[in-house]
Each structure stands twice: as structure tokens, then as C-alpha cells.
Design a protein around this nucleic acid. Structure first.
Lengths: 253, 253
DNA sequence: CAGTGGTCTAGACCACCAC
DNA sequence: TGGTGGTCTAGACCACTGA
């Protein structure tokens, strides 16, 4: 067969409207992402084999492979030789290594425990609407937590979520430590990536109380926006961290 | 031809000593990296074409391509369609986007100007020897600079380098703003990647003087170790940044 | 126009895993 | 043992660049 520059459209899917010519493996990638968004395969489940996907999509195995390689590099899929290709889960390790960069100065990494301070639903202010791309009179959840390692409070965090996107979240008695798994399993929202903006700030009196330190102590403020598979903002999280015995690790490459 | 599980060793290069079986494209990658280290192709220069490399190395074009793809993903090479594959340079854009994460809160990015404060050669202390993997009585350069944007001092930085690896550096009248280009062009040392550890600290009186602020002001401390192509530590850099109008941008994905 | 990287295909065999 | 991903090969054609 020679170049078939577009995927033969199988069942019912709105074909890309003359996209200015994307490579085939790009189109395959986007088809797969859309199916991930639609929940065709859930986190932890296996995709069809490369061979099957190639047949289904009417594309050569090499092209499917390239698309899967890309998605794996983006941490959306996990490949296990001899077993298959799986939808990435927000398990302990992924959250620890991909979404938690605070490291003990002695080099060890661990996820702090969380203690819920408050959980309320309020009308979103302008900044919150902007960060989460919400409509004019939308509401949001405010989750306040203190996070501890070995009984030492090191992080004070506030999480802000669209109340529409996470209905009934406030009725939950327990907010698990790993909220990204909660988002995925209970609300069908998978966090695909995040951006963090870091500043050094002075502890407010309230910070000082939560973190057992003194007002004015320098804290590392982490301002995170997390995005879903469709690039919509899912979560706005503001953390303030004591960095006397910890540091934020960033790899430049 | 069927699988040739090892590269045919052309001229004179010590063949890998039974590596426990690395994939061919890995071996190709390592051969290429070694040639980069040896300066066979200098930053900005073009490598031979994929076709030529394949013939030279006695490997199929697809295998060469995979190795080049990996090196490109690591920012060691740059590919330009229709032109060739080039050794990555530490030009303004690379330094700005790969090695300078401080961003104005309004979203603009730019490299601050540098003002040299002091440059001296001293005996390395234990911590410096440890960070730079130096021998017992080695010496180091200390470069102190203040960095400004629009006349505002926002960063105070100290750079520590092995005096042996950068001979005669102290005789230079000018230390350019872009030191990584200096390392590469003048000393043949290419920085390949770096790790940064971030903390919030209180400004010392000296910090306060350099940055036109008050003692105790929260500063973002960036502790960077930069590594060469052979993974040896090249530079230890300690920066203290005013983050009232700036933030450190970190992508989680 | 010739030369380069970029895409796509097709098929072989290897390494690993579960049964 | 059969199925999966991982590697390697071979060759066609496309897209881009510069002379």
C-alpha cells in the first residue's frame, strides 16, 4: 500500500476538518487521546495491542507505535513489555515522582500525610474564574489542608475546584491524600499535566500558626494549575512550604 | 542482512566490553556522545547525514534515526529539515528557555544583564570539592555577579568552577553574560543538563545591599549543579532571587 | 535541482510475560 | 506456548532547504 494520508474513518467520529495536513501518527495520537477523554479505556486498563490498533485504524504498525511512543513520553500511557499498553494511573508513585517535587535535604522523597482544615463551597471570585475558565456566576470548592511528614507540618495548601465539575465533593466525609486518583476514579477527570509558579513569600500569622513557625518566616509558595487531557484547567492549588529541611527539585534538560 | 547485534568497529575505538546487551541504537547513541565529548563535531556544526552515519556505523538508517531522535529529545542535537543535524549551541534562546526559569509575573521572559562583583581563585572547601568532584587540594574560581532587568537588581549569584578545568579564566577582563557559551567555546566544556534545588530563605544584610531591599526579605534560593556530556559536574551556582515581580516556572508532565 | 530530514510501510526476529 | 511490546532492517515517498 502507498501513503494513505488520512485515517480511513471507521464507525462514527467527526473526521478532522482538513487540519492543514498533520502527519498520520499525529492523527492517530489525537484519536487515541479523544478515546481516553471519552473513557473508552479507564486508568489502569489495557489498550488493544499495537497490531489490533493498526488494523482497526487502517494504519501500519509502525505508525501506531510512534503515536503510542509519544503518549508514553507524555506519561499518559505506560508500556510493559510482554504485557501490553496501559492507561496511566495516578497511583502513589506517579503522584510522588511527577507531581510532588519537594524533597528532603537528605535526598529521601515521600508523600506527606494530609489533615483537612476546611472544605466549603463558595461563589468563585474573578481570579478563580479566570484560573479555572469558569462562567460568570460559577461556584468553587475550597479545600484547605495541612500536610505533615513525621508529625511535622511542612505544607499548607488550598485547592480550588469547579463545583460543577466535581458535584457532591463536599458531601464526602473523607478527602483522600491522593486527590488526583479521586478526581479520576470518582469524577472521571484525569490530570494530564500541570504548571507550577514558585515564589518566596513571608509567612502570615495564619501560616505561622498552621506550620508551627513564626510570622515572617520565608516560605516557598507553589502556585499550581493542573490541566486535563483536553487541556482545560482542572485544579488551582496554592501551597506554602517550609523549606528549612526540604527543597523543590527541578531538572533542567 | 539479519540482526547484527553489535556495531562493526571501524577505525580505532575501544569496543564496548560485552555490555550485557544494549540495543544497537543505544550503542550508536553512546558512540555519538563520545564523539561529541571528543569534539569531533563542535557546537553549531553539522553531523554527517543519517545516510552517511548509517553506512559509517554499519547500521540501518532507522537505527541511526532512533539514536539521533533520542539525542535531539535531550537537547544535545538540533535537527532542521532539509538542512541537517547540528550540535546544539548554548545560544541566547537555549539558555533562556532551558536554563533560565525565572519569569516576569506578566509572562515575559528575558535574560537579565550581569554585573561582575568579584572574581577570585581560592582553595576549594569540602562542600565545593564534593559538589564538583574535585581532588583534595584543588582550587576553584568564585564568580560573584548581580543580575538586573531594566536596571532593577533581581538576582545575586555565585558561580563556582574548577580552576583546573577552566585555566586562565581569572585573566579574562570580561565575563560574558552567557557563561555556558564561554565554557563551550573557550574551554571545550559543554553543559548538557542541570539540577536545581529551590528554597525560600531570608535575605542577609549583604543580600539586601546587593538587591536594594531589606534584610530578612524572603528570597528564592536556587542551588544549581550543571553537568557535562560525560555526567561530570561542571558548575555549582547559588542564586538568590527577589520574587516580588517574578516567579520560577516549572512544567510538570 | 540535489540533498536533507520526516513520514509511512512491511516484515523479521528478540525479550519478556503469563499461563 | 502464544501474545505482547522492543528492536532492526529495507525501501518508498513527502516536505523542506539552499544553490
Amino acid at each position: 500500500m502507498t501513503d494513505a494520508q488520512d485515517i480511513a474513518v471507521p464507525p462514527a467520529t467527526p473526521a478532522d476538518p482538513l487540519p492543514g495536513f498533520k502527519p498520520l501518527y499525529r492523527q492517530v495520537r489525537e484519536r487515541l487521546v479523544r478515546q481516553l477523554i471519552d473513557g473508552v479505556w479507564k486508568p489502569g486498563e489495557a489498550l488493544p495491542s499495537e497490531q489490533q490498533l493498526a488494523v482497526t485504524l487502517g494504519v501500519s504498525p509502525g505508525t501506531v507505535r510512534k503515536a503510542l511512543d509519544d503518549l508514553t513520553a507524555e506519561n499518559l500511557l505506560v508500556r510493559r513489555q510482554g504485557r501490553g499498553t496501559f492507561v496511566a494511573e495516578h497511583d502513589h508513585d506517579r503522584v510522588l515522582f511527577q507531581y510532588f517535587m519537594l524533597t528532603n535535604d537528605n535526598g529521601t522523597r515521600s508523600l506527606p500525610e494530609s489533615t483537612l482544615v476546611s472544605l466549603e463551597k463558595i461563589r468563585a471570585n474573578a481570579q478563580e474564574r479566570n484560573r479555572l475558565a469558569l462562567a460568570a456566576r460559577a461556584s468553587v470548592w475550597h479545600i484547605e489542608r495541612v500536610r505533615t511528614v513525621d508529625g511535622h507540618a511542612i505544607i499548607r495548601e488550598r485547592i480550588i475546584l469547579s463545583a460543577d465539575r466535581f458535584p457532591g465533593l463536599g458531601d464526602r466525609i473523607d478527602i483522600p491524600n491522593n486527590v488526583y486518583q479521586l478526581y479520576a476514579v470518582t469524577f472521571g477527570v484525569s490530570v494530564a499535566r500541570a504548571e507550577e509558579r514558585l515564589k518566596a513569600v513571608a509567612a502570615t500569622p495564619e501560616d505561622a500558626k498552621c506550620l508551627a513557625t513564626t510570622s515572617g518566616t520565608p516560605l516557598l509558595e507553589i502556585d499550581r494549575t493542573a490541566y486535563a487531557l483536553d487541556e482545560s484547567p482542572v485544579e488551582w492549588r496554592l501551597s506554602r512550604c517550609l523549606t528549612e529541611d526540604y527543597h523543590y527539585l527541578s531538572d533542567l534538560r
